[in-house]
Design a protein around this nucleic acid. Sequence first.
DNA 1: AAGATAAAGTTCGAGTCACGAACAAATCCC
DNA 2: GGGATTTGTTCGTGACTCGAACTTTATCTT
Lengths: 416, 416
Amino acid sequence: MRKIDLNNFQVATSETARDINSRIMLNLVRKHQPISRADLTRYSGLQRSTVSVITEQLISERWLREGDMGQSLRGRRPTFLHLNEDRAGFFGINVRPFTTNMALANLTGDFLAQESMPTPSSASQFVDQIGQRIRSLKLEFPQMAYEGIGVSLPGRVDLSSQKFIFAPNLNWREEDLKERLEQATGLPVDLENEANACALSEFWFGHHSDGARNLIAVAVSEGIGIGMVLNGQLVRGPSGLAGEFGHVALSEEGPKCGCGNTGCWEVYASNSAAVRYYNDAVAAGRNGKGRPHVKNGKLHLNGKNGSNGANTFEDVLEGAERGDLQALAALDRMAHYLGTGIAMLVTGLAPDAIVVVGEVTRAWDRIEPIINEVVKRRSFTHATTRIYASGPAPQPRLRGIIALVLQKHFGAPVIG
Amino acid sequence: MRKIDLNNFQVATSETARDINSRIMLNLVRKHQPISRADLTRYSGLQRSTVSVITEQLISERWLREGDMGQSLRGRRPTFLHLNEDRAGFFGINVRPFTTNMALANLTGDFLAQESMPTPSSASQFVDQIGQRIRSLKLEFPQMAYEGIGVSLPGRVDLSSQKFIFAPNLNWREEDLKERLEQATGLPVDLENEANACALSEFWFGHHSDGARNLIAVAVSEGIGIGMVLNGQLVRGPSGLAGEFGHVALSEEGPKCGCGNTGCWEVYASNSAAVRYYNDAVAAGRNGKGRPHVKNGKLHLNGKNGSNGANTFEDVLEGAERGDLQALAALDRMAHYLGTGIAMLVTGLAPDAIVVVGEVTRAWDRIEPIINEVVKRRSFTHATTRIYASGPAPQPRLRGIIALVLQKHFGAPVIG
DNA sequence: AAGATAAAGTTCGAGTCACGAACAAATCCC
DNA sequence: GGGATTTGTTCGTGACTCGAACTTTATCTT
C-alpha cells in the first residue's frame, strides 16, 4: 500500500480508467504475444466489449498490430495480436569510462542497430557526437516513431536537477547533460546510473524473474555499484544516491578508499582490488615471498588501480583462464569479498534474486561456488535469494537503459 | 514508475476514478483539516462540482463531518470539513516479550483507550484474552464502526501464509494467529513486524517527514530490527524477511550470534550487547582490571543476555543516569556500534531520515553525538540523512501498527 | 447437407464518473 | 441598496466500463 504524496499527486479523470487498462493490455500482449482478444479478456477480467474497444484504439495508435489467425477446437478462430515492432524507437546509450555503446530498440526491446565509439572526453563532445549519430539513425529508419533516449552513466544522477554527479571514472564536468541532449535531438532524455539500469534490465527482460518484484544488481567494475528494484520499483532514494553499498565498510580497519572511508566493500571486491591482489602477489613472488605485502595488519595498497605491474583486470582474467595460480588466487580472493558484500544484501534486503554484472562474470564458474559458500555461511539463513551472473543478454546496461525508457509506456500510470 | 504485476493486478472500472479521488480528498483533509471544499479544489485541481459530490459522499459514509464556518475577506464564508473522529475504530496491539499493549484509535489516529497486560505464554491464551478485551471495548464505545486490528510482533511475518515466524524472544509456536484472531473478533487482522510498524509510524505520523518518502526505523531491543519505507512503501521483501540488517556482520571475526553467523551488528549494538559490556566491565573491575575480557582477539561472551552479574539494560541506563562510569562506557560502546550500522544504512539506502526506537533513546543526549560522529566518518558523504530518536509519541510500535490499519483507508488504491 | 453448438468479436443502451458552465447563496465594500 | 467576490450546488456533456444481444466463423452431429 502506497501513501499518497500530497506534494506531488495526480487526480483521476474520466480517462484514467482507460489509461490504466490500456497499460494492462499492452503488458499482457508483451507477456503472452501472440494473443487473441478473447484471451485478453480471460487474463484481464475485463469485458469482451471493453477489450475490443481498447485494442482497436491501441491498433489505431500503432502500439499493436493484428497478425495471423489462431486455431480453436470449435467456433470462430481468434485473431492474434502482437506488439507493433515498427512502432516506437528508443535510443539507449551506455557510457563507460573508455567506450560508449549505443543502440536503437523497438517496442519489444529488440535492437535494430548498435554502434560503438570511444567515450568523448567532455560532455559537449558527447552531445555533439550522439546528436549526429541519432540523426543519421533516424534517416536510416524513417518509419519509426521515436519516443526517447536513455543514458546509462557510471555515476549517480541527481533526481531533482537531473544533473549527474559523481562520476569518479569519467572526467566530465557536472553538466546539464539531459537538457543539452534534448535540445540536440528533440527527444526526451532520461539519465540513469548504470547499476540501476542493470537492475531494470533484469526486472523487465530477465525471464527467470517472472514473479520477482525484488531484485538487486551488483555492477562490478572499477568500483561496485548497486541497483535495487524493491516492490517492483527502482529505489533511488530522495536524491538518487541510494545503492552505494559499494562504500559500506566490511571491517572497521582496512585499506583507504577514494571516498574517504576505509575498508569499503569495493576496495576488497572490485576489479581494481583483484588487480591489486594480483600485482602484489606477482611483486611478492619476485621478492621470493609467496604472500602479498602486509603492513601492520593492513593490506598494502600500491597506489592506484594496477599501477604497480601495469596489469589490468583483463590480464587477471586471462591469467586465470590460462591457469596462472596467482591470477586464480586474486580472483578467488575477490570472489570471497564479493560474497561477503552479497551476504549483506541478502540479509538486509532478502530479494528474490541478485544479479552480478561485469567482466568478472567471465570467470563465473570459478567464483560462483566461492560466493555461494560465503553467502550461505554469512547471511541470514531463512532468505532464499538466488544469485546468478547477468544472463546471456550481451549488454545488460544497454538493455537496462532501454527498459528505463520502455517503462514509460509499460509501467503503471502514477495515480493518487 | 511501477511495473504492472501480471500475476496479481487490478483493472480499472468505472468506479476507479472515484476511488482514487476520494482517497486524495481524505488525505488532504487529514493533512490540512479543518479545510473548506474550496480549498480542497485548490489543493487537488479537481472541479468544485467534483469536490462537492465526493465530499457529500464521504460525509454520508461518515468519513468526514462538517464543522464551523471559516473566515473569508469577502464573499461567502467557507464550511470547514474534518475527519469524523467518531467513525472507524482501529485496534492496535503491540506484543513485546514481557508486556503487551493495546489501544483503540479513531480515524485521526488518536487513542481513545489504552490497556496493558503481561504477554500471555501462548498464542491461544493471547487470542482468548485479546478477544475478551476487544469485546468489552466495543461495548464501551458502541457508536464506532470497527474496521480492523493490527498486531505488532517481535519477529517476522510470512507474507504469503500470514503466519509469523521467527520470534526468538517469544515462545509462541508458529501458528495461524491471524485467522484465529479474526474468528475470535470478527474483524480483519494484520500482523506486522515491530520494526516495520515503527517505520510506518514515522511515515504516517512523523510531522518532520513532510515530504520524506524514504525512512528507516532502527528498533533496538534484545536484537536490532530494521523497518524500511522506500518510495513511500513498506519494503518487506518477497516473503517478509527484508530488514534483517541486524544480522549483517560488521566484521569477519566477532562474537557468535544466535543466528549462526558471527559478528552480527546486533551482537555489538543491541541492549543485550550493552549489558554484556557492562557485566564484563564490572567483572573485570572485581578482578582488578579496567577492561573487559578479551580472548584471542575476540570479545568474550558471557553466556546469554546479562546472565553474568544479572544486570539488565534498565540497570545500565540507570547506572548511566547516575553517572556510573562503567555504565557510561558500555553505553558509549553500544552507541559506537549503532553508528557503524547506521552508517551502512545511510551509505546503502541514503534515506531522508533514520529513526532510532527503543529504551536506548532515553540516553539519546549521550549517544547522539557518538552516533553522528561515526556516521559522518564512515558513511558516504553526499547523503544528507537525518538521524533522530523516535519522537515524543510514547508508543511508536502502537502508533505504527495503527498506521498499518489506517493505511487501508488512506493509502492509494492499488491499480494496474 | 442442414441444423446445433460453440467460440470470437461487435454493437448498443445503461450506469458511473469528471468536467465545466450556469446558478444560488453568503458576505464585504462603497 | 447595488456591485463585486467567494463558496457551494445543479445539470448537461463526453469518456469510460458493463453486460446483454447480436454477428461472424468455425466444428460437430445427425
